[in-house]
Nucleic acid binder design. Structure first.
Lengths: 334, 334
DNA sequence: CTGAAAGCGCTTACAG
DNA sequence: CTGAAAGCGCTTACAG
């Protein structure tokens, strides 16, 4: 079964290929009557535009790319990414765009090679960049390659809405602990090479200080073992915090284990990411629902608008919600 | 910065476009000396083949597609899919192929529309089909569309290696419970519209019967709430099972909760899928590590071989491993 | 409103 | 071993 082309449609209708093309694309240049005949014939023959022919003549790939560069083993455990992809994909498919996905692990430079290839081959029209790092080289690279991009979670104003997001989230968390009576807390962050982790730390410090709460920080790497070790260190230090904030769900669960191991049962725990892990752990963990799918929708919409040269009509992101669970224990009376 | 094309290379070297193309593709028709000059010039000019031009002239998209049609909310919680994607993606990128991802939720027919469009537009060269259902309409559809495909987890022999896989996995699980002394077990399955769930049930029944173990089944839908309800029903029935097998990790954790709610603390639990949920729950859950990434690699390799018209050189899948944890409790003495 | 023609950047028979 | 040419299936100025 040979492919049906516009030449077939044109021939059957006694028209030129150009007219058929105009009709099919809703452009001026054909009468309404002709257009309808063309559309009907296209449907009858089961015509679909050839993706590659269209891409070649328009020089648009109608695809956008995402490179995930976290450790694949960790990716599987963090529902954040799947939900993010879901939101991105939803917007793209509505717009008739495809999503190209690449997972490159953490080896430095592998993502760079993918961007260079994508740009060189014209395989994608733009990319969404995740996990912005301090001094991230990717924006400069992508600019040099002429590959449009958006930084996930950052508004184009440059100021970085992401920072505002982290502040709002930090407020939710610290205010909650404040209400529970905690005066000394600790925040176990992810890698401080990631911009949003630095933002979170800054925001937690600011919000705690404003409320007269003592705060300390420990850097971990999103894994169970490291977080577990950090918590044991914190507990063995001079003055124990009465509440712990973790930058993701896996570390929060590691915290639970460490607290149990150390017999410290009255310490409150909050996770910056919600997941089934928080929902079904023992005890269940208070966590921030950040709606990653909506964030994904927003980034995808921003990229499409950028590609179309439209302005930033995208609505502000929905604020996070704190889901209170069993680890929201009050501070012990001194 | 206009795109560098083979015409540019040809002009600089005083060759024809054809010679350049032959040289770049490693085909006969140019001297080794010419080839080297061409390759060097291509590198110097930063040439990359235009993806769309190549796709148009070769009528190959160099991309394969996957349609995920489980509930997006559940997708995020099941690391199985992320790990599967990781394996698929790894094989594809090594072969210079791209992965197109679509998530369509559970609305019937939405996946069909995607396949029709992909086939019509020539956007992918083939697809990997997941979650094969009883009387699955997709193979017939894809055949009609002329879109090559592999059924994930099924060897092309037709007999269905998947069934063998489920039997081997059922053996691992039932033998383990047998050793622990259990004589009465229950298996909470996923939806029985899915082929592999039926296979699992058959395999568990067969293996249990062979060992003189009484077995009963309850159908659930992979969600927490349904599984929770099923377990409570099982416990309130006449003779309690002393061990429960769950077809995924979320249901296993729901089982833990139901057992705790009913005060049935000595019931053993095994999950057919491993995840952090099993690893970090309380108590920790014995689970089957099925290496979904390897299964993904295998399906991707099979599809590429199919597209190349090569034979099935793909190695057999690695057998699963049972990870024994705290819920592997022995049967109570009568 | 319609048609003939060139072009997007490759690949691939076909002559030399 | 090399070159001129047609073709993949669209889009888009350009004449009529």
């Amino acid at each position: 079964m040979a492919r049906v082309t516009i030449a077939d449609i044109a021939e059957r209708l006694g028209l030129s290929k150009a007219s058929v093309s105009y009709a099919l694309n809703g452009q001026a240049g054909v009468s309404e009557q002709t257009r309808q005949k063309v559309v009907a014939m296209a449907a009858e023959l089961g015509w679909h535009p050839s993706f590659s022919a269209r891409a070649l003549s328009r020089s648009r790939a109608d695809a956008i790319g995402m490179v995930l560069r976290r450790d694949p083993a960790l990716l599987g455990t963090e529902p954040y990414y799947m939900r993010l992809l879901e939101g991105v994909e939803d917007v793209l498919s509505e717009a008739g765009q495809s999503l190209l996905l690449r997972m490159v692990g953490t080896t430095p430079g592998r993502d760079t090679a993918v961007y260079e290839r994508w740009a060189g081959e014209g395989r994608v029209d733009g990319v969404i960049v995740l996990d912005r790092a301090i001094d991230d080289p990717r924006p400069a690279l992508l600019t040099r390659l002429g590959l449009p991009f958006v930084l996930h979670g950052v508004l184009p104003s440059g100021a970085g809405e992401r920072i505002e997001d982290q502040h709002r989230d930090a407020q939710l968390i610290v205010a909650h602990l404040d209400e529970l009576g905690h005066r000394r807390i600790a925040h176990i962050t992810g890698p401080l090479g990631l911009a949003h982790e630095v933002d979170r730390r800054t925001a937690v410090r600011h919000e705690s200080t404003a409320r007269g709460i003592a705060v300390e920080f420990a850097e971990a790497d999103y894994t169970f073992d490291t977080a577990h070790a950090r918590v044991l260190e914190l507990l063995s230090s001079g003055i124990r915090p009465t509440a712990l904030v973790f930058s993701n769900d896996v570390m929060a669960v590691a915290g639970l284990r460490a607290l149990a191991d150390a017999g410290a049962h009255d310490v409150a725990v909050v996770s910056w990411d919600d997941s089934m892990l928080c929902q079904f752990s023992y005890p269940t963990v208070t966590a921030l629902e950040r709606y990653p799918d909506r964030a994904g929708r927003r980034s995808a919409a921003m990229l499409l608008e950028l590609l179309d040269g439209r302005s930033w009509s995208t609505a502000a992101p929905s604020p996070s919600t704190l889901v209170v669970r069993e680890t929201s224990t009050p501070a012990p009376r001194p």
